[in-house]
Structures are given as C-alpha cells and as structure tokens.
Design a protein around this nucleic acid. Structure first.
Lengths: 336, 336
DNA sequence: CATATTTTTGTAAACGTTGCCAGAACCCAG
DNA sequence: CTGGGTTCTGGCAACGTTTACAAAAATATG
C-alpha cells in the first residue's frame, strides 16, 4: 500500500505538504503542488479513508435503516435520501434489519463506534440504546431521525404523514362512492402507524354513522400473501363487505387477486383502497385507488434534518408532517 | 468519548489488558477480566471501530452496488447477500448508482481507500479503475464479484444465469402454446444481458422456422412505463403479434396494461411472458408467465465467492452459471 | 541591504486501537 | 525455599492521516 509518506519522499517534500496539497491546495506553492500531484499520479496514491476518519471529527457518512430493502415503498424513500445525501456530500450506507432487533443494534453500533455520523430510521423498531435512554428520560445517544413513524415520549426529530387523517380520508372516499359495508385489512400492530391507520378507519366509520361488524377488521402483515389470505377470510363472512381499506398497496394487490379468484368484480362487488401508491398499484387490475405518501419529500426531509443535526444548524421543525394525497383510480370507481 | 485508556485507568490495568479482555478473554486472569468488564459497563465503552480498522488488515465489510435499489429484482438479491453476509460475519454497505458512473466510482474508491474489503457488482456498469485494468490486460485492482452480468475479456469471478438459453426457453414456450407472431420488448442494450436475451429470442424463432417481422422488436428500458409504451407501439402494427416476450417483468406488467386498455385479452389475443419472477408478477392480471432467476442463490453465491477471494480460499469456480426456470402462469395460457 | 512581515514548509504529536516483546507473577517440583 | 517453566501483564511501537507550532523562505518595507 502506498502511503502519504511514500508520496512525500517521491516528491521531495514533507508529509504535511502532501496532506495540504490534498486538503487545501491553495496554501501550497504551485511548484511543490505539481510535484506532489505528479507523485500521486505516478504512484496511484489513494488516501486511506480509515486513517483520515481517525483524525477527523466527522466522516460525512450516515446509515439508513430499512426493515426490508425489497419493499418498494422503503426503497423509494432510500432513493431520495441517496440523492440528497450525495448532493450534501454524504456517503450513505444502507442497512436492512428484516425486523431483527439484533441487526438494528448492530447498525446502531456503527454510529457509536464512529463508522457513521448518524442514523435515519425507516422502520418501527428502535435501537436498544435509544430505547434505554428514552425510558431514562435522557437525551438521544446519537444523531437520529425517524422517517415514517414517531414515538410518543421519544424526543427525536421525525418526518411523518398523518396516518390517522390519511386512513380516514381513504375510508371517507369509500363512503362517498356509496359503500357502507367497509372492512379493513391492517398491518402488523407493532407498528404504531398501523394502529393509526386503524384509528382513522374507525373514525371515518363512526362519523358516518356506520358500525364495523365483527370480522371486518382483519390482520395482515404488509405482504401480498397476507392480503390475499385476509381477503379470502372477508369473503367468507356472512355479511360480506362491499369495500375494503388495506393498510398498504401490497396487501391490496393480494386482496384484488382473492376477489378475482372468487369470481367477483372490482369495484363492482367490492371496492378497494390501498396505501402507499406503489408504482405497481397503478398497473394492477383494476388500477388501485390509494393514498400517496410523498416518498421523495419524506426522504429528502429526513436527510436534511440529519444534516442539520450533524452540523448544529438549528432545526426548523422537530416534527415535520407532510401532506398525503388520495389518488383515485378504478378500484374504487362507481359500480359498473 | 470514552477510550480504551479510560477503561484501563478505571480498571487499574494496562490498555493491552483491556484490549485482550475484548479480543481474547481467556488469555486474561478472571479477576482482571471482571474488573475490565465492569469498567466497560460502567463507562459505557464502545471500541472505536475506525481505530480498530486502522490496525487490522481486514474489516469484514463489503459493498454491494445496485443500479437501482427500488427495483425488486435487485433488492431481492441484496437481501440474500445480506443474509449470508451476516452469517459469515460481514457488514454490508449498499450503494446505489442510478446508472451514474461517477457514483459507482465513488463506491469503488471506498474499497481502494480501505473502507470496505471488496465489491459485489449487480449492474452492468464497471468502475473506471476496473475498466482501465481490463484494457491493460492487468489483474483486477480490487476483490470483485459480478452478479447478473459477465464481461468478455474481464477475468473476474461472476455468477450469472444463461440469459440466451432462458430467453430462448421463454420464446419456445410461446411457440409451443401455438403462437407464431411473437414480438419482444427488450431492455436497454447497454446491458450485455439484454443483448443475450434478444439473441435467445432470435434463436428460438429461427429454430422454429419463424421470421420476426419488422417492428416486432421494440426497445424498452426495464420500467413499467416503457413496457406500456412499447406495447402500444406493437398494437398499432399492421401485423399485430399474438405474443410478446418481455425482457423483464416490469415491462411485461406495463404491456399487460396497454393490452387491457385497448380492449384486448390476455392470453386470448396476446400472450405475454416476462422475466425475473417478481412477486408482483404472480399477482398481475392475469398472473404472469415468466422466467425465474434464482435471486437467492445468485446473492448467496456472490457473497460466498467474495468471501473466498478475501480469505484466499480457492474458488471452486471462476464462473458460476445458475439454473433458470420457466414459470407458467395464465398470461401465456391456452387461448380462452 | 537590513529588518519586519508574510507566506510556505517541516517536525512531531496526536487520533484509538492492536500486538510484539520483555518482564512480572504464579505454579510446581525438588 | 529455590529454580525452572508457565501464564499474565504492561510498555511501547506501530497503523496512515491531520494539524499545531515552530522554523525557514519569500516578500515587503524602510
């Protein structure tokens, strides 16, 4: 490995001069600067980033934690984080937890052990260290931004949408197009956001004077398959619903499939609304009505927030709530 | 920040003993060991990974480069890489290029600058440094494994499927179910794998004594939208095809949509075959016949290969070709 | 041309670990 | 209790940078 010392020797200068040539070239006399650059060129020197990081207080690297990389909703957010990050001069390391606390802690430790400067958290899990400090009412143990979810009692910058209102909007839409027997397929209740969406569902129903019947609320786990299974269950009910609000698009797609299998039509027999606005939803059959979350803004805001934290810029908002949007497509159309 | 020295002082031992307690506990007398552990506990000491990495020759970290993280095909491979990596004790950093050479080079530099030990490359782009050494006929400038694609003239371990044979199989299937006017929607031709798939298409056609008419070969770019556009183009043709082989599932889904829009049926009027076996394909309408790539094995093999390279284990195979599989679903069914 | 001032350079001390090596402490046999 | 052999421990030199600080060189000033 060629080091800064080799370059110094070759160029006939001191290591400090080499370092300066790299860091602040204008501070070194052109003649020497050229000699150094030439040596670097000739010897193909690349500074050892690890050694640099040992000296420097900050590395301009962040970790983004995703429960599941294969989930398009998350990967779209990651994508927008990456874009802003590059613009701001950060490198982005992506970590996948697959719901495992152990893996999350592993990544969190990468920031306590100084491999990265901060963490953007996309799932519903919290690193153990963070959980501990929350309990103790202490400040955050590391620069952290939450996207998608927030936690009561955790004083941490976050960017979210109003899941209660969004779900409510979705269900109200179903009511407006004339549905009354509205069921819902929920996500895993460990996520507070799922509880919120369920709350929104209830709220819309109650306000419209509708009472969800027993069996109209079915648990899913955000996968296509679980939506499929849940829908089959709903279809067997005595009082079959005429509409279903699904807590995400993947489950909605699974539900659609189940409805088709039973020879029923969408939206004729059953209307469907999803959540997330996956790009596959627009191409489902029929195209899926859904709530659009602003994945771009979500990612961008999260990235700018962590950047602000890391550079002690004042944070405009501790808590940013972005606007959601109802996208009406054929799956909730008028009965045809 | 609490360092190893603080722990040493608190526990009344030398730094070496602290380090040993962490690295090889059995080599230190239980009494001291306990004192050290207690100090670590009390002071909440976490070793500085950067400093460790400066001393250690290897970091057990790899970078996986993906063109696009939001593409489920890639993210499934990444997922399986992650799983094996954790098992083998590696940390995985994911980098997204979005087709930009500049970003790719940036990540490649993370391995020359010792942030990571090696690279797994999922796209069709090569880092500039690698390209340079290939031209010069030199050995690889860094531990590198290619997944999905291989390059003529680049002597680098890779794991792929036989895209020519797979595409051929897909088209042969269409021929077997009685189609004759078979079109294809290709991916971006910068990817050698797209050229391969087109070759497979041609080969199957020729062998069956069929000649693709002008206009039956349309370019796409792997997105749903491009599949949609391409299909619309095909539907306007004088001699409308009665089957389409799409170079990936996303484009196939877009194509299906276009067919529905024009009031035609699948597979009645037009049969469709995709490629990749995305999970959304199974829930398309109708469910999509496709070529399954073994994403799990792809990822796992790539990871094991890079591990072998990094630990100088002999590589069983420089080039691994995995088996593909035709998954027949309704989109290519018998005319109904 | 000497002196004061500014710019450029080099020396050496960090950064937080690990691991070699030598010395200290321990154990057992005689 | 001594000596020899183990086992543990501590001191210290790396690892490859960056950066104070001081020294040297260049430039400006009288």
């Amino acid at each position: 490995m060629v080091t800064i010392r080799d370059i110094a020797k070759r160029a006939g200068v001191s290591v400090a001069t080499v370092s300066r040539t790299l860091r602040e070239p204008e501070a070194v006399r052109p003649a020497k600067r050229d000699a150094v650059n030439q040596a670097i060129e000739e010897m193909k020197y690349v500074p050892n980033a690890i050694a640099q990081q040992l000296r420097r207080p900050r590395h301009e690297a962040i970790i983004v934690i995703v429960p599941e990389i294969a989930n398009p909703f998350f990967s779209e957010i990651v994508q927008s984080i990456e874009n802003v990050a590059h613009e701001l001069g950060y490198r982005v390391l992506i970590g996948e937890t697959q719901g495992k606390q152990e893996r999350l802690d592993y990544y969190a430790e990468m920031v306590t052990s100084r491999v990265a400067d901060g963490l953007i958290l996309l799932g519903s899990l919290l690193p153990s260290v963070v959980r501990a400090t929350v309990k103790a009412g202490k400040p955050l143990p590391m620069p952290l931004v939450l996207a998608c979810e927030s936690y009561a009692g955790l004083n941490c910058p976050h960017v979210v949408i109003d899941n209660v209102a969004a779900a409510k909007l979705a269900v109200q839409h179903l009511i407006e197009v004339g549905r009354k027997k509205i069921a819902t397929i929920t996500g895993p209740m460990v996520n507070s956001l799922c509880a919120d969406r369920l709350r929104g569902y209830h709220s819309a129903m109650v306000e419209a004077g509708l009472t969800p019947e027993a069996g109209w609320i079915v648990d899913g786990d955000f996968t296509i398959e679980s939506g499929h299974v849940a829908m089959l269950r709903l279809l067997e009910l005595e009082s079959r619903p005429d509409a279903v609000f699904c807590a995400n698009d993947e489950m909605a797609i699974g539900a659609q499939q189940a409805i088709h299998e039973k020879g029923l039509t969408i939206p004729g027999d059953i209307a469907i609304v999803g959540f997330d606005d996956l790009r596959f939803g627009a191409y489902a059959s029929p195209p899926l009505t859904t709530i659009r979350q602003p994945t771009n803004e979500l990612g961008e805001t999260a990235m700018r927030m962590i950047d602000a934290m890391l550079h002690d810029k004042p944070l405009a908002e501790q808590s940013v709530v972005l606007a959601h949007q109802l996208i009406v497509r054929r799956s909730s159309g008028v009965q045809d």
